[in-house]
Design a protein around this nucleic acid. Structure first.
Lengths: 325, 325
DNA sequence: CATATTTTTGCAAGCGGTTGCAAGGGCTGG
DNA sequence: CCAGCCCTTGCAACCGCTTGCAAAAATATG
C-alpha cells in the first residue's frame, strides 16, 4: 500500500506538502502541488480515509440500521438511502438488526467503527434503539418511525395516526360499514398509531395483528378473519394487503365488492397490473431526502434541537376499493 | 471519546497493558486485566477499531457492492449477506453501483476505506468490476455472476448455461414447441449464458431483452412480443416473468394453456398464491454461504488460487406451465 | 536461599495521516 | 537596494492503538 511518505519521497517534498495537496483549502504552491499530484498518480496513491479520520474525527461512515429485510418496500428505501448518502460523500455501513434486542450492542458496534451518524430506517424497531444511539452521542435520525413523542431524536416520517384516519374516512366514504384493521407487528409504534387513527374515526373496530410485514403473515391473518369478516380492512402495509387479498380470493370473496382492502406504502408492487392495490402512499423519496437533510444538519451542528419532519400521505386509487358513488 | 490513555490512567497501568487486555492472546496478568476491565467499564471504553486497523492492517470492513436495487430478490440476498457477515465479525460497507460505469472509481473508494475484501453481488454488473477489484489487490468474490472464464476471481453462482438448458428441456417436455427467450439486460453475462444454454437445446429461438430486471420491463417486453407470440417463454428472472404474465393476461392470453412461462430465481414472491410462477430455483442461501466461505478463505490466504463454486438449480413446479402429461 | 526461567510490564517507535508554528523565500513598494 | 509582507514549506507533535524489545517481577529449580 502506497502512503503519504512514498509520495513525498518521490516528489521530493515533505509529508505535510502532500497531505496539504489532498486537503481542501490548504496552502500549497501550484508548482509543488503539480509535482505531488504527478507523483501520486504515478504511484496510484489515495489518502487513507480511516487514518485521516483519526485526526479529523470524521469518518464519513453512516450507520444505516434496519430490521426490515423482508419487505420489498425497503429495497426501494435502501436504494434511495445509499444513493443519497453517496451523493453527499458519505458511506453506509449497513447494520441488520433482525433478531437483535439489545440496543447497547448496536451502540458499541457503531461507536467502534466511529460512524459519524446513524440512520434508523425502520417502522418496527423499538424506539429504544434510536434513543440509545442518540444518548450515546451519535447523531441519529429516525426514518419511517413515529413522529410524536420520540423526545430527542430527529424524525422524518408520515403521521401514522393521520394515515389511520385517512384510511377509515376513505372506507366509510366508499360505503363500507363494518370496518376491520389488519395491522403489522403488534408492538410497533407505527402499528399502534395507525390503529389509533383508524379507531378515532371508525370507532372500536375489530383488529388483528400480523406477525411480520410479509405476504404469509398477511395471508394467515386474513384467513383467521374469514369467519366474521368485516366489510373492509385497512392493512398495515402493502405486502400484508397482498397476502390478505390472496386469502380473500382463495376463499371466494370478491374484492372490492364483497370486501374492500386498503394498504399503506404504495410500493412499486402495489401498482403492478395483476395486483392494483388501493393504498395510501408514503412518499419514500421525500422522506429519505428529508432524513438525509436532517442528518446533514445534525452533522454540521451536533447539538441542534431535534426536529420532526412530517410528510403527507395520499390516497392512491386502484382496484381493491369500490369507487366513490 | 474515551481512549486507551484514559483507561490506562484510571487503572494505573501503561497504555500497552490496556491494549493487551483487549487483544486476543496477549500476555496480561489476571490481576491487571481485572483492574483494566473495571476501569474500562467505568469509563465506557471500547477500542477504536479504525485506529487499531492502522497497525493491524485489517478493518473488518467488507465492500458489499451491487447494482440490483430494483429486484426484490436482492433484498433477500442482502439480508443473507449482512447476517452472514455479521456472524463472521465483518461489517458490510454497502456500495450502490447503479448508474456507475467506471470500475476505477469504485476501486478508489474501496481502497480509501481500506476494506478487507469485497463481495460483488450482482448478476448484471460488467465483469470488469470484479476483475478491477481483484487486480487492485482486493480479495474479491463474485456472487450471482458468470461461473466460467472469469479468470482470477472467486465465484459462487449457478451455471446459467445449465439453467438455460433446463428451461428449454422443461418447456419441450411439456409439449410447448415454438419457444421464446425473454431475457434480462442484453449485455449481462448471465443473460448471455442463459440464452446460450436455452438455444443449445431449443435451437435458434426468437428472443428479446428487457431493459432491466423489473416488472415494467418484463411487461413491456412481453407486450412487444404479442404479435408473433411463441408458445412458451423462458424469462430471465421472476420479476420479469411476473411482468410478462401481466401483459399476457391483459391481452387475454391464458397462462399456461395458450402460453407457458418459466422464470428464474424462485424469489419469495414467485410462490405467492396469486402469482404461483413456475420457475427455476437459485439456491440463494447456499450461494451466499458459499460466497462468504470463499471470502473467508481468501482473507486467510490472500493469494490462494481463485475458486469457482457452482450450485445446482432445480425446477419449481407451480402454475405457469402445463403439467407433464 | 541463590539462581535460572518464565511472565508481565513499560518504553518507544510506528501505522497513515493532519496541523500549529516558526522559518524560509519571493514579491512588492519605496 | 532594502524593508516588509505574505505565501509556502518543513518540523514535530499528535490522533488512538499495536508491538518488538528489554527490564522488572514473579515463579520454578536445585
Amino acid at each position: 500500500m502506497v502512503s503519504l511518505k512514498d509520495v513525498a519521497q518521490r516528489a521530493g517534498v515533505s509529508r505535510s506538502a502532500v497531505s496539504r495537496t489532498f486537503t481542501e483549502g490548504a496552502s500549497v504552491a501550484p508548482a509543488t502541488r503539480a509535482r505531488v499530484v504527478e507523483a501520486a498518480e504515478a504511484l496510484g496513491y489515495r489518502p487513507n480515509l480511516l487514518a485521516r479520520s483519526l485526526t479529523t474525527r470524521t469518518t464519513g461512515l453512516i450507520g444505516l440500521v434496519s430490521n426490515n429485510f423482508r419487505n420489498p418496500a425497503f429495497l426501494e428505501i435502501f436504494d434511495l438511502f445509499t444513493r443519497g448518502l453517496q451523493e453527499r460523500g458519505l458511506r453506509p455501513l449497513l447494520v441488520n438488526l433482525t433478531d437483535e434486542v439489545d440496543p447497547a450492542r448496536s451502540v458499541g458496534l457503531l461507536r467502534q467503527y466511529s460512524v459519524d451518524g446513524v440512520i434508523v430506517a425502520s417502522s418496527t424497531l423499538p424506539t429504544a434503539f434510536a434513543r440509545a444511539f442518540r444518548e450515546a452521542g451519535l447523531p441519529t435520525v429516525l426514518a419511517f418511525g413515529r413522529v410524536a413523542g420520540e423526545a430527542g431524536v430527529d424524525v422524518a416520517a408520515i403521521d401514522n395516526v393521520a394515515a389511520g384516519r385517512l384510511a377509515a374516512e376513505t372506507l366509510l366514504a366508499r360505503g363500507y360499514r363494518r370496518l376491520g384493521f389488519l395491522g403489522g407487528p403488534e408492538g410497533a409504534t407505527t402499528t399502534i398509531d395507525r390503529l389509533a387513527g383508524f379507531r378515532a374515526v371508525a370507532g372500536d373496530v375489530r383488529h388483528r395483528f400480523a406477525a411480520a410485514y410479509s405476504f404469509e403473515a398477511g395471508r394467515d391473518a386474513m384467513r383467521a378473519e374469514l369467519d366474521g369478516l368485516a366489510e373492509a380492512y385497512f392493512c398495515g402495509d402493502d405486502v400484508l394487503s397482498i397476502g390478505a387479498l390472496s386469502a380473500l380470493r382463495d376463499a371466494g370473496r370478491s374484492v372490492p365488492e364483497d370486501v374492500g382492502l386498503i394498504g399503506l406504502n404504495d410500493m412499486a408492487m402495489a401498482g403492478w397490473d395483476n395486483i392494483r392495490l388501493t393504498t395510501i402512499r408514503q412518499p419514500f423519496a421525500e422522506i429519505v431526502g428529508g432524513a438525509l437533510d436532517l442528518l446533514g444538519d445534525l452533522l454540521r451542528t451536533p447539538d441542534k434541537a431535534p426536529e420532526v419532519r412530517v410528510y403527507p400521505c395520499a390516497l392512491v386509487e386502484r382496484d381493491t376499493l369500490r369507487r366513490p358513488s
